[in-house]
């Protein structure tokens, strides 16, 4: 494990311990400062969980492999466009924690 990853994990643990009630029941909404949100299902996202090199290495490890191609149904792009409307984007970033910023969880919800 890289040193940065150890630091990341340490930060994640601190975050989870310190903000255990905030993380899922009351994530912070960056679009509406001061607002706290509840989310269902229980879901976490975190940026930089893997380094870029680790991502590349995992892809390489899986190639070549016993790949299965599954192509039973083509999902039409046209109908999916409608689903983009009114649904949100949700992201938890702990980048700021790594750079020694104050410890907090950021949840960003973009509508539309």
């Amino acid at each position: 494990m890289f040193a940065s990853q150890r630091a990341l994990l340490r930060c994640a643990r601190k975050l989870l311990q310190k903000h255990r009630t905030d993380l899922h029941r009351s994530p912070r909404c960056l679009k509406r400062p001061g607002a706290w949100l509840s989310v269902s299902p229980a879901l976490l996202t975190m940026d930089d969980f893997l380094t870029s090199a680790e991502c590349d290495a995992l892809i390489a490890l899986g190639t070549p492999g016993a790949w299965h191609r599954v192509d039973a149904i083509f999902v039409p792009l046209e109908s999916m466009e409608e689903l983009h409307i009114a649904y949100g984007f949700f992201s938890l970033s702990i980048r700021s924690m790594i750079s020694h910023s104050p410890l907090f969880a950021q949840i960003c919800v973009d509508r539309g």
Partner: peptide, 12 residues
Amino acid sequence: GIKIAPVKGRCV
């Protein structure tokens, strides 16, 4: 709804 963008290194 919650939509998560596929960004390298991100986990869900």
